[in-house]
């Protein structure tokens, strides 16, 4: 854990990973829980977001429930073409996350699309633009979804 986060900010990060209530003042329960004002909750949350400790604040949508689809994909990108291919891949708005990994398959990204057929269309377009094969790893079964990091 990094040392430069105050205990209060740690507690706030943990609170913000829970589901906030659908009420006019969604920050009010967190303020009560932490014993600070709503304004301070908001100010600290804004700072954590601006500093990059929180990536976003808002609703998390399930692309599949929207009729769309997610698919994990991987590519083996030659080292000397990595930045060029990265620029091309990231330019697709369907690419939701992308990670570099230490393997021959060194670029792993998740596509989130509005329809199931958009997955094949997008991967075909990426293959066309990069000249590299895209391997598809759609999820067949999910064993755990409670993703949470203890700050």
């Amino acid at each position: 854990m990094t040392a430069d986060i105050s205990d209060l900010d740690r507690k706030l990060i943990n609170c913000l990973q829970d589901d906030l209530p659908l009420t006019s003042s969604p920050f009010s329960p967190i303020a009560s829980q932490l014993g600070i004002s709503e304004e301070e909750v908001i100010e600290r949350t804004r700072r954590l977001r601006d500093d990059g400790l929180l990536t976003r604040f808002g609703p998390f949508f399930d692309a599949e429930a929207l009729g769309g689809a997610f698919c994990l994909c991987a590519m083996a990108v030659p080292a000397d073409r990595f930045e060029e291919v990265l620029t091309k891949v990231n330019a697709f708005s369907e690419v939701a996350h992308n990670y570099e990994r230490n393997h021959r398959l060194n670029m792993w990204f998740v596509l989130a699309t509005e329809t199931k057929s958009d997955i094949a269309r997008t991967t075909a377009a990426i293959e066309r633009e990069t000249g590299l094969q895209v391997l598809l790893f759609p999820k067949e079964q999910e064993f755990f979804i409670g993703f949470r990091v203890n700050a």
């Binding site: 589901d19 604040f57 998390f60 949508f61 990091v149």
Partner: peptide
């Protein structure tokens, strides 16, 4: 309907030392 999984924040676990 499951379209929204939750409303909250996503931490950057790298920045949190993970």
């Amino acid at each position: 309907q499951g379209v929204i999984r939750r409303i909250g924040a996503a931490p950057n676990h790298y920045r949190l030392g993970m």
